[in-house]
Design a binder for these strands. Structure first.
Length: 591
RNA sequence: GGCUCCGUAGUUCAACUGGAUAGAAUGGCAGAUUUCGGCUCUGCUGGUUGGGGGUUCGAAUCCCUCCGGGGUCACCA
């Protein structure tokens, strides 16, 4: 319908004023609620062509379009805004079509493959609140891209080597007394994290000791014995020392087992894993090639740099003077590797916090410099930091929120809340437990995803599982209630078949919203933003609650209307469920 | 210091990417309903969009400047 109106606007301008206007100049939008009508055209851009006042231009154009499109039954003009009303028959037709559509809103296959990287943890400590936002975001964006018809490869690169791992290792070796996940009952990643903390404690104590002995702080930080031991261990690892490698392997395995449990709770998964220990040498060859092609330059000390002055970025080091690589080198190599491995790849999404905005800008610039055209398709899905209501989350100050603990806590809260007022009769214990986690984790996910990824946000755990407001459980509740309604209708023997029906304003409003769903999916895909989906589904639910409250369904006497309302409710439930699936949030039938 | 992102009701977030009188939620106040399933629904309250200037039919949105806050700029990862 939008397209038809746009075309008629162009035609009308030609007919009325003999003016040539490009289709792109026609702005069409949904009519705001406070005005009459369904669709609105802004006429200001055409004033030059019409040489008339905005009101007159709109009147002319409105008349032309009403008489040329049957479904346009009325128009009105407010200032320079031309509002059209579309017949309710048209909307009913739209709805009937939607009700029949399988997988409504999902786009046809694009033939494209997109890779989404998210999570990418270090293996020296457990996951925290920031990782939750990262995982939920990456997973949801992957779903959204699938709904846009793309093939998606979910991946993560595991940071399994480096000085930070050695810190945990050395501390465990010195203080661990052979402690294992089995012997301690600790989850593997938490056990390793415990020794990372132990390292830090010991390290600080040693620094203090050296300072007390009269050493400068900066020097003490380098000279602390435990730190030196970690460095020695890293060198041994790089030299392939068997004992070190074995310890490294053992502790990493503990961590992976722990992560696996966390991922399962979060409801995320991956198609392809990369390990930094395999990839950290990648990219050196490419840098050498780039140097030969004079894309990069070498300093006298032998270090290799990329000159980025033409893009207003500082020069970036790619190889140290001793020939070893830096993070950037590895990222260059890994990106190229991924494109080699997946011939049909056309997009690489990096879900990484906004503290690395600069890094990715540089990475993409260098890839372009090296002549990889696909660098244009790479995207840094950057997200802001999460703060807690009572202050910032800083690992240094020990206010990090552990992901496992948080999820456990929120599910426990959901349990308490649901037991108090839930409809749990007839559910088995396992079904109940599943429901608690659906509500708790659903609330958590929804809360973290409803905010524009780019922005920082304040996370309020209590609010996230509130049954009121813009929350996951509020939406889940609406879905459960519709299911209950449909079930009741079925048991009463009501039909969902109707021929034709006269709609009221609320029903028409709902159809218009449902009709937006496909464009919401497209928009969310284009902007890589689950927030667009959550805002949409919240609006839909609010509108439905309004309808549910004010319009009789099962008590309606007109069988046609009753059937239509059931069908409408059912379709809305489907859209709610589908939207929430895009966010990675389950919706229960009972709660 | 250079670069960069941000600043919107008391609070948490929106605003179709330059469109109408800046909207929701929450909080507070007043009411409706007591069921198809409860915390559902309606109304009221609340704003100099950080300040100032500019661009134009039109600015929260674009440009400049100042104020305030984050991030980044390592032969770290």
């Amino acid at each position: 319908m939008e397209k038809r109106i746009i075309n008629k606007v162009v035609e009308g301008l030609k007919h009325l004023y003999d003016a040539e206007v490009d289709v792109k100049q026609v702005q069409i939008q949904k009519t705001r609620k406070e005005f009459d009508g369904d669709l609105t055209v802004v006429v200001f851009p055409f004033l030059r062509a019409s040489k008339k006042s905005p009101e007159q231009t709109a009147e002319d154009l409105g008349g032309f379009i009403q008489s040329n499109i049957d479904e346009v039954i009325a128009f009105n003009v407010v200032k320079g805004f031309l509002n059209f009303s579309i017949s309710s028959d048209y909307w009913l037709g739209v709805f009937n079509q939607i009700a029949l559509t399988e997988n409504y809103g999902h786009q046809k296959s694009s033939g494209k493959t997109v890779m989404v990287e998210y999570c990418s943890p270090n293996t020296n400590k457990p996951l925290h609140l920031g990782h939750l936002r990262n995982n939920f975001l990456g997973y949801s964006v992957a779903n959204i891209l699938k709904a846009n018809g793309h093939k998606v490869v979910k991946t993560q690169i595991i940071n399994d080597r480096g000085i930070h791992i050695c810190k945990s290792m050395i501390a465990w070796q010195k203080l661990g007394e052979g402690e294992t996940p089995e012997s301690s009952g600790l989850k593997g990643d938490h056990l390793v994290g415990k020794y990372y903390v132990a390292f830090d404690k010991e390290y600080k104590a040693e620094i203090q000791e050296l300072i007390d002995g009269g050493m400068e702080k900066a020097e003490a930080e380098k000279e602390a014995p435990i730190f030196k031991e970690a460095q020695v261990m890293l060198r041994k690892w790089e030299d392939g020392d068997e004992e070190v490698k074995a310890l490294w392997q053992k502790m990493n395995t503990w961590v992976y087992d722990g992560f696996e449990v966390s991922f399962k709770t979060m409801g995320v998964d991956f198609d392809e894993l990369y390990y930094e220990s395999d990839t950290y040498l990648l990219g050196k060859g490419v840098v050498a090639e780039g140097l030969a092609k004079k894309e990069f330059y070498q300093k006298e000390d032998g270090s290799v740099w990329a000159d980025l002055s033409d893009t207003k970025l500082d020069d970036k080091i790619l190889l140290r003077s001793d020939g070893t690589s830096v993070y950037m080198t590895q990222d260059i190599g890994t990106a190229i590797e991924r494109y080699k491995k997946h011939e049909d790849l056309s997009g690489l999404i990096y879900t990484v916090g906004n503290e690395q905005n600069h890094h990715f800008k540089v990475l993409f610039t260098i890839l372009k410099k090296l002549g990889y055209a696909w660098a244009e398709e790479c995207y840094h899905l950057s997200y802001g930091m999460i703060e807690l209501p009572d202050g910032k989350m800083k690992s240094r100050e020990g206010t990090v929120v552990d992901a496992d603990e948080l999820m456990e806590m929120i599910v426990a809260d959901a349990k308490a809340m649901t037991q108090e007022r839930g409809h749990l009769e007839g559910m088995s214990e396992t079904e109940k437990e599943e429901l608690y986690s659906t509500i708790g984790l659903g609330g958590l996910k929804y809360f973290l995803l409803k905010v524009d990824p780019k922005k920082g946000m304040i996370f309020n755990p209590a609010e996230s599982i509130d049954l009121n407001g813009n929350t996951g459980p509020f939406i889940q509740y609406a879905h459960a209630r519709i299911q209950s309604l449909l079930k009741k209708a079925e048991s009463l023997g009501f039909s969902k078949e109707y021929d034709t029906v006269e709609m009221n304003a609320k029903e028409q409003e709902l159809i218009k919203l449902v009709n937006d769903y496909p464009s919401v999916i497209k928009e969310a895909g284009k902007l890589y933003s689950p927030a667009i989906v959550s805002n949409y589904v919240f609006d839909l639910v609010k509108e439905f609650n309004n309808f549910y409250q004010t319009v009789d369904i099962l008590r309606e006497e007109d069988q046609q209307k009753l059937a239509f309302r059931l069908c409408l409710s059912q379709t809305i439930a489907k859209v709610i469920k589908s939207s929430m699936m895009l966010l990675g949030v389950k919706v229960p039938d009972k709660m």
